[in-house]
Nucleic acid binder design. Structure first.
Length: 570
RNA sequence: CCGCCCGUAGCUCAGCUGGAUAGAGCACCAGGCUUCGAACCUGGGUGUCGGGAGUUCGAAUCUCUCCGGGCGGGCCA
């Protein structure tokens, strides 16, 4: 049980004894130092519904509170209970940790997390950073607390647009193909330009779509070659970004091709289908457009083709039925909200979804400095690989300047980790729901609330531990929290578990980022004010080394959850 | 027109299951390296929480309304 749970349960028991257990205790970390470590906000609400004087009830609660970890309790303001923790209790709980980092242990479930999902027609751009960084972090946190997680990369490898690509590919010879595919964006643009300007080419492109969908062998072979190349590009980017998606995690759109007619047939059997202008649609009452007219979910187009509604339904069917996931999380942009709502609603109506939890975790779009959205067609998009390279270059220059004694090889490997960490953290540290401004200087900042700040705290600890000549396993003695900075750090360390819980509450990774930033700040303050190696009292020195060591463990695990590596020197 | 999202310090953002005097980072100013790594620390001020109304002991947070911006809305994904 973490600190909050310990307090919560004690307060809940007092509430019960006082006959006000109908109201929740509402225990929170105190907002200000002067209010102690935790505060109980639930007394006022409880007093209100029981028609009691809030301050009197608060006093009664404090009198009954059976909580040995508490040093001081006080009733404040209109009826808050402020809780100051006892240093020895923090010391005890820290010492019990050993080398473990405290994480919550919920009932294990099977999660599937759908993220990344690049369209193989286009090279990944800056916008893909969000789904990759956020999705991968969620996966890591879920695994860290003991859930079973299936990564799902629903890559877009199918559809009418592939016609022009194939037509274009077909007129190249093999060596040209491999060189042309090095820059997918240009490749795609050349093809679509031809499609627009060359009528004969456009005709041929349409023919390729039909042949591809019909399973024409030569066409399929060409398609495979393109997909293969394109996936290689993606995997390279994942590796560069330290994203844990493997090829085996790819479950592409085309994998559902055979299921599409089945899905339509099943919808038909359930009487959900209706024809409208030649298209097969599902009309659900909850979705209405203007004038209250129902909005169709088109599952088969009038030309017989299947739109992505069908594919996504097939995916739901698979994930709930065959994959048997308890919870499926879609880390997909906010613009798809209505679409996914429809998908889940139709899937529920069709009986594909019963008691599984399917959730869309939307994230905002990238905006330019002026607050206007990036256009998708005008070439304003920044390639993801370019952002990575820029970040690593800046980190390289910085690390070389700050730490010239390292070797060239060290400079390079550190720059890779620091640069990549910085851009991922920039995404993760923001509330995922809102739009964000794309700004090189913010994205690539190495100061303040950034990944390099956290990594820097980690290297300082490693440096101290190394100079002290101790291994973490040597540190088994007494922890003493005498100084305010020591106590604050100790409490903060124990709160890692609460941060993970809160982050998982609504899958907000910025909650974890905030915690790690505060932890690092607390460590920096401790580091400045509580000398370790210069400390003459060996017991105090040992205690501080141990605090530092635990901090390093928490930082490493926390950053690891965010998909960010640590370095011993930087 | 309908639906969803957003509007918090000069900038980028936290805080949103209602709680105390609304917080960080950047930028700016002043201190701190012969002393465990200055990518750091200490101190300094900044707000009509878009406007208005309502709910109540208490609203940035919940409700309504208006203004401003974004996104989505039958055969692209």
């Amino acid at each position: 049980m973490n600190l909050k749970e310990q307090i919560h349960s004690a307060v809940a028991q007092s509430f019960e004894e006082l006959g006000v257990s109908a109201s929740p205790p509402i225990v929170k970390q105190a907002q200000k130092r002067e209010f102690g470590h935790y505060q109980v906000n639930g007394v006022m609400g409880a007093a209100k519904s029981a028609k009691l004087n809030p301050r009197e009830l608060a006093t009664k609660v404090t009198e009954r509170l059976n909580l040995p970890i508490v040093n001081k309790l006080e009733v404040a303001g209109p009826g808050f209970v402020n809780i100051h923790l006892a240093p020895y209790a923090i010391e005890q709980q820290l010492m019990q940790l050993g080398d473990d980092v405290p994480v919550p242990s919920p009932e294990p479930r099977h999660f599937a997390v759908d993220y990344s999902a690049p369209n193989l027609m286009k090279e990944m751009h800056i916008g893909h950073l969000r789904t990759n960084a956020i999705g991968d972090a969620i996966v890591h946190v879920l695994e860290a607390v003991g859930h079973q997680v299936t990564r799902v990369n629903h890559v877009g490898d199918w559809g009418a647009q592939f016609g022009s690509l194939l037509a274009y590919l077909d007129q190249l010879d093999n060596t040209e193909i491999s060189t042309e595919l090095k820059d997918l964006e240009v490749f795609y643009q050349s093809a679509s330009k031809l499609f627009k300007t060359d009528h004969e080419f456009a005709e041929r492109a349409r023919g390729y779509v039909v042949r591809l969908q019909g399973g024409d062998a030569q066409c399929v072979a060409l398609w495979r070659q393109f997909i293969e190349e394109s996936i290689k590009h993606c995997q390279d980017v994942y590796e560069r970004l330290n994203i844990s998606l493997a090829r085996a995690d790819i479950h592409a759109e085309s994998a559902y091709n055979d299921d599409l007619p089945v899905v339509v047939a099943e919808l038909e059997q359930q009487g959900l289908l209706e024809e409208s202008d030649g298209a097969m649609c599902v009309f659900l009452e909850e979705f209405t457009g203007k004038d209250g007219k129902p909005l169709p979910a088109i599952v088969r187009k009038s030309d017989g083709g299947y739109p992505y509604m069908a594919t996504d339904l097939a995916a739901v069917r698979y994930r709930a039925g065959k994959l048997r996931a308890d919870t499926v999380l879609y880390v997909v942009g906010a613009p798809q909200q209505l679409h996914l709502k429809q998908v889940f609603a139709v899937a529920t109506a069709a009986g594909y979804l019963t008691d599984q939890e399917f959730r869309h975790l939307p994230f905002g779009s990238i905006l330019k400095n002026d607050g206007k959205p990036f256009k998708t067609r005008d070439g304003a998009e920044v390639k993801l690989i370019d952002v990575i390279n820029e970040a690593v270059t800046r980190a390289y220059q910085l690390v070389r300047e700050k730490n010239p004694s390292l070797t060239e090889e060290e400079h390079r490997s550190i720059a890779e980790i620091v640069g990549v960490g910085a851009i991922k953290y920039a995404e993760l540290s923001k509330n995922r729901g809102t739009d964000y401004i794309f700004d090189w200087d913010i994205l690539l900042s190495f100061e303040g609330n950034t990944a390099p700040y956290l990594q820097y705290a980690y290297t300082r600890i490693q440096s101290v531990l190394k100079k002290a000549g101790v291994e973490p396993t040597d540190l088994r003695g007494q922890i003493t929290l005498a100084e305010p900075d020591e106590l604050d750090l100790g409490v903060k360390l124990l709160q890692f578990s609460e941060a993970i819980e809160d982050a998982l509450e609504d899958y907000q990774m910025n909650v974890l980022c905030n915690y790690l930033f505060e932890l690092s700040g607390q460590f920096m303050s401790f580091y400045e004010h509580c000398p370790i190696l210069k400390q003459s009292d060996p017991e105090i020195q040992h205690s501080r080394l141990r605090l530092a060591s635990i901090t390093a463990n928490v930082l490493q695990l926390g950053l690891g959850c965010l998909g960010i590596k640590t370095v011993d020197r930087m």
